[in-house]
Design a binder for these strands. Structure first.
Lengths: 191, 191
DNA sequence: TTTCAACTACCTACTACTAGGTAGGTGTTC
DNA sequence: GAACACCTACCTAGTAGTAGGTAGTTGAAA
């Protein structure tokens, strides 16, 4: 069981740095110190590994979003927490979040993984839409349009900003891209 | 010479759909009908092909940006044209623009290609910064912050929106992500 | 005006290597 | 003794890249 987790950890890092096509069972084998064939004991196919990766990631991610929603901060505060998740995921500009990495190298993904990916996006937008709906009430975010449009834009923004930051290996590019949105967030709820 | 262009066209489509690791010389060979080995005559290594791709793409792209700048539209109108380029590049949600595709599958790119990629981003941000500076003067874009921050955000937004749209193979997701920005663009210059 | 060398754009046939995946065996633990 | 977690040894298919050869073209000297 420990090996399985090591495999997932190692694979996740690899995907987020180099994409799903950017690592092999041989790479994992070297990194965690078991034979290549033994990896197939834990994940029969690479597609299975991919599915396990996104499943675990979604679980963690949505748990984090749930925590943020249950905190009784303003919409602005919740958005700030959301952005921080994506910023932390950058890890010095070395990697992007798993869902960006998979969206990117879409070529060789199984349909099951692609479904999970779309679920991921849909749920993210739904969560953000709720936040922007609350923002319309508590007035903690300025310059709002339709909640679902603000939500989709916010998702595209953090994902695109991650891409830029990783390409230049420089987190400050992420900050520069997010600055305008963050400037719209007040420090305290208005209503 | 015709073959060289066919190769570039075919490779560009492949990269934009499936990433740089997502196609092989064998694929190109089948598609344009010459032997795999003959491709090496035109592009000695795959890295060379990658460099030729981004070089050609950058040339076209920045020529288009130059045309937009030389048109005497408002900042808002120029932004609309810029967004339209990215929207057109989606081609029914099948592909993303080359620079997004390369940013994504960053794993196996040569340093020369990575340099070009960063140049691409830098020049895009510079171009957009100029547009937002003009917007601050002609008042055709509402809700502006610092030009360079708006510029970086706009770049991240269109790139992220492309990623989302391709993942769901649905251009309307791109439109949804861009709606809020487009809503800030007035139809006529204010000053 | 023929001849010859060089060049272009391809070819067949290969190399060396990596990919994911499989068959079947081994030692340890419950 | 059976399930578990690993192993060695292998397979097939595909990867980029190379060696060496060949029609057809071009351009200039004999």
């Amino acid at each position: 069981m420990d090996t399985r987790i090591s495999l997932l950890d190692s694979a996740e890092r690899a995907v987020r740095q180099r994409g799903f096509d950017g690592f092999s069972y041989a790479d994992l084998s070297k990194e965690i110190g078991i034979r290549k064939a033994s990896i197939h004991y834990h994940f029969a196919t690479k597609a299975d590994l991919g599915f396990a990766l996104i499943e675990r990631y979604a679980e963690r991610f949505f748990a984090a979003l749930s925590d943020i929603r249950n905190s009784d901060g303003s919409a602005a505060a919740q958005l700030r927490s959301y952005i921080q998740i994506y910023r932390d995921a950058l890890a010095e500009g070395e990697q992007v979040c798993l869902c960006v990495a998979l969206s990117a190298g879409r070529g060789s993904l199984s349909t099951a993984v692609l479904e999970q990916l779309n679920r991921f996006h849909a749920e993210s937008i739904a969560w953000l839409t709720e936040v922007f709906e609350r923002a319309a009430q508590d007035g903690s975010v300025s310059g709002c349009a339709l909640p679902i449009e603000d939500a989709t834009a916010a998702l595209a923004l953090v994902e695109g900003a991650q891409l830029l930051a990783r390409a230049r290996k420089d987190v400050s590019l992420f900050d520069q891209a997010l600055a305008a949105l963050i400037a719209r967030l007040t420090t305290h709820a208005v209503h």
